[in-house]
Amino acid sequence: MLDDFMMRATLAGIGVALAAAPLGCFVVWRRMAYFGDATAHAAILGVALSLALSISVFAGALVIALLMALTVNLLTGRGYAMDTLLGVLAHSALAFGLVAVSFLSGIRIDLMAYLFGDILAVSRLDLSIIWGGAALVVLLIGWRWSALLTATLNEDLAYASGIDPKREQLVLTLALAITVAVAIKVVGVLLIAAMLIIPAAAARPLSRTPESMALVAAGIGSVSALVGLRAAYIFDTPAGPSIVCVAAVIFAALSIVGSVRASVQ
């Protein structure tokens, strides 16, 4: 079954969608969209470094994404507005990454594969790393779910309940770095934030509780992966962007349904 590249691609897409759904909800609730972007863009630098050092791309991307996320955490609230800070860090990381890649003259690498993903080339090993990483993210967020939600609502409420919001922020940071690392192969660094945000945002009009929003987001993400890959196969379009396009169409449709329903009530 796993011999078929379409099957491997589909499973990889669903794995990323499942990890991205609960994390993406927090990214949306906490308004961390740029944070996700910055972490993802930094990963290209990790890709370049791991190719230069001949280590696993997953490992390199994970380390640099984590460093980036921790740097942002550290610099937050120290003089610059958050969006300025993230704009500086995200785009510099991307630029340094692209420059670093150009130094790798010995190795001919397909930059597009890392910018936009190369889901059809997912190997069995890749697949196991993706599912391992996704499982880790889901377990991590599931374990901290209540504490994360409380810290997201209000930091002081969290403190009063004996929860340290800074520690919960670190949990999210770690989950984000893992997700970025495993999603590079599937959608590429430029579209990872889309996989985080679009399914979660699309799930909002259908949800009454945070839990249902995460579940619906997982469903929407998985459907996007399935349909997007199928569409890419039929129309011969790039796979990662096709997945994001399907998610965006679902988002638009559900937003319209949601606003119509709200105006009827």
Binding site: V28, W29, A147, L153, L157, A201, R208, T209
Partner: peptide, 15 residues
């Protein structure tokens, strides 16, 4: 945040 769906019962059950 308006993006965070939350019923009263769910809110009271936190954490």
């Amino acid at each position: 945040d308006p993006t965070l769906p939350m019923t009263v019962a769910r809110f009271l059950a936190l954490p």
